[in-house]
């Protein structure tokens, strides 16, 4: 009975051993080599491959709302649009024998930056329309003049 209790206790400890630390509520594997850590950003390397890392974080976030996963050429980008304390997890794809993971905290720089860009984007859409209309208008006027 005592052995069983010890085995159960050790079994319960496994997750704590493998994923003993975390950053903004996200677990980090113990074999990780931390490259950079500050209040807003954590960069680390792990021996797990990209697919294992992605599967792991998908599992961790399976109950989280407002998570979106984007597959880019060199990284997988997991973004939270909800209320979690972190903003994104970037998992590298093409580094041999290891994977680089970057976790970034929710930050106002990102929010303000993206808002400014999108506001400029509205101007760009309307400026392109303005230029197109001006060109189309002048062509139409010229054609009409020629006809007359």
């Amino acid at each position: 009975m005592k052995e069983i209790k010890v085995i159960v206790f050790l079994f319960l400890l496994i997750p704590a051993i493998s994923w003993s630390s975390d950053f903004l509520g996200l677990p980090i594997p113990t074999d990780s080599k931390i490259i950079l850590k500050n209040k807003g950003r954590l960069e680390f390397e792990t021996d797990m491959n990209h697919d294992q890392c992605l599967r792991y974080y998908k599992d961790v976030l399976k109950d989280a709302k407002d998570i979106k996963i984007r597959e880019w050429k060199s990284v997988t980008y997991i973004e939270d649009d909800g209320k979690l304390p972190w903003h994104s997890i970037t998992i590298s794809k093409n580094i041999p024998h290891k994977t680089l993971i970057v976790i970034v905290k929710d930050n106002w720089t990102w929010i303000m930056g993206t808002l400014l860009l999108r506001y400029i984007g509205v101007f760009v859409v309307l400026i392109v329309l303005y230029i197109s209309m001006s060109i189309a208008g002048s062509i139409a006027s010229k054609l009409l003049k020629d006809k007359e």
Binding site: F123, L126, I127, L129
Partner: peptide, 22 residues
């Protein structure tokens, strides 16, 4: 179409949309 530069006013008027977001 007669005064296409007024398109820019339509863009400028979206200012509140982005401020309210914040």
């Amino acid at each position: 179409i007669a005064n296409p530069k007024t398109l820019l006013i339509g863009a400028g008027a979206q200012l509140g949309v982005f401020i309210t977001f914040t």
